[in-house]
């Protein structure tokens, strides 16, 4: 028996909106730790890892570890039917072939339940080691989204370079080139407007903008994004999910031909 009650149901809607274009089908794993997911995109270039810790739920009952195979676009369709302020409860029996999403309006005057068919998904679980990064950039998530969107009108790839000057995002395409430099800046009115660059060593890596743009679908989840870079490792683009967890996108770099 599984029963997870999330008061901030809107968070789950935002999580699904940030996943559904990257991944078609995925197993949600429920354990005492929390509600998590690890999935790759269909071309095995990017990987997403979601964790919503059990403490973040108002009620968290998970009698035994359970893996729920879901089609993410169908799950997003169902969650779209919940109000942004609704309380969302996810329920499933141990041997269930379906999952129930219950939506309660904040003043309890409307209660809806949606039942979605589960699916068997054969997915490969990858072991992600803890890594030391050469550079970690924290910046406003909306700024990062704007940069990725702007650069993708000019080129297909972005070179992200971190030096002591700051972080540089560069692209080139048929019409020309573009470089955007963001400097370390903590003299801002609000902490979420800061750009914080921690650099052990300079690093420069090339990534497909199509994937970066897909990751920025998570922008509504968090004011800040963390971009962790190391030579010859996938970049990690992380958004916090309130105080209860995170969504991390890993993207393999491109190498010179």
């Amino acid at each position: 028996m599984l029963e997870l009650r999330l008061v901030q149901g809107g968070l789950l809607k935002k999580v699904l909106d940030s996943l559904k274009d990257l991944v078609n089908d995925a197993n949600f794993d429920c354990s005492a730790t929390g509600f998590s997911l690890q999935a790759m995109d269909s071309s095995h270039v990017a990987l997403v890892a979601l964790l919503l810790r059990s403490e973040g739920f108002e009620h968290y009952r998970c009698d035994r570890n359970l893996s729920l195979g879901m089609n993410l676009s169908n799950m997003a369709k169902m969650l779209k039917c919940a109000g942004n302020d609704d309380i969302v409860t996810i329920k499933a029996d141990d041997a269930a072939d379906s999952v129930t999403f219950m939506f309660e309006s904040p003043n309890q005057d409307k209660i809806a339940d949606f039942d979605m068919k589960l699916m068997d998904i054969d997915s490969e679980h990858l072991g992600i080691p803890e890594a030391e990064f050469q550079a970690i950039v924290r910046m406003p998530s909306a700024e990062f989204a704007r940069i990725c969107k702007d650069l993708s009108t000019i080129g297909d790839t972005v070179v992200i370079s971190v030096t002591k000057e700051g972080v540089k995002f560069s692209t080139r395409g048929d019409i020309g080139t573009a470089n955007i430099v963001c400097r370390h800046n903590t003299s801002v009115d609000k902490p979420e407007e800061a750009t914080i660059i921690e650099m052990e060593e300079t690093v420069s890596l090339t990534f497909a903008l199509r994937y970066m743009n897909s990751f920025t679908k998570a922008t509504p989840l968090a004011n800040q994004v963390t971009i962790s870079l190391s030579s010859d490792l996938p970049v990690v683009v992380e958004y916090k999910v309130a105080e209860m967890g995170h969504i991390r996108f890993y993207l393999a770099p491109k190498i010179e031909e």
Binding site: M40, V45, G155, L251, K254, E256, E257
Partner: peptide, 14 residues
């Protein structure tokens, strides 16, 4: 531009 690497090259299967 460039060769796209596969994410599974970096992480072990568990």
């Amino acid at each position: 531009r460039g060769i796209q690497r596969n994410i599974t090259e970096f992480f072990r299967s568990t």
